[in-house]
Amino acid sequence: MFDFLEGYDLLGAFWVTVQLTFWSALGSLLWGTLLAAMRVGPVPLMRGFASAYVGIVRNIPLTVIIVFTSLGLFQTLGISLGADRFTTINFRLAVLGLTAYTSAFVCEALRSGINTVPLGQVEAARALGLSFPQTLRLIVLPQAFRSVVGPLANVLIALTKNTTVAAAIGVAEAALLMREMIENEAQLILISAIFAFGFLCLTLPTGLLLGRLARKAAVKR
């Protein structure tokens, strides 16, 4: 029944999906946190930049961003992100695009978490002589992260699924293989089911793990 799987590197394709997700998650957590810091910070220019960034990026379809990294950044501007093989270049461009996009959502999730930290604690920190970055790093962000583990998990799950858009610029992840298999084999439903199951295997543990983390963090308060 599963003979048609012969000759396709299913695991390899999902492994690329995992790598895309991992690097993009790391990148967007970092960049998203930085954006959130700018948005609540005292420097008007940074506040303006971060809120414009989030406003714009959130409203552009991901496909447009991903295609732009390939056509705009690479083919027009020649930015290859330090790689020379096509597959590596496309992979890195996809990570860049996914990071740029997802970080806007990470920023928004974090900002709502920052708003749950009582202003009094921020003033208490300032009254001790802590600087703004110290107050953010030691007092605000740790509590903000705790209260947004749930929303952040949703962002990560969405990211996992969004990696399929990288197929648009030829990154050999799961969705690209799926399209190829559907074209070549007469097993539309079964193939779709296999890939759906594959994505479930990636996203469900993320949700469960972070859900448990959220409950644990909540008790501590």
Binding site: P118, Q121, A124, R126, A127, L130, I139, Q143
Partner: peptide, 26 residues
């Protein structure tokens, strides 16, 4: 600010830190 201690009406202890860490942080 380090030389001027301040105590607020609503205590405003750092909720994610232990009592000891609240007092050692500064």
């Amino acid at each position: 600010r380090a030389d001027v201690g301040m105590v607020f009406q609503s205590f405003d202890l750092f909720a994610h830190k232990t009592v000891l860490d609240n007092v050692t942080l500064g």
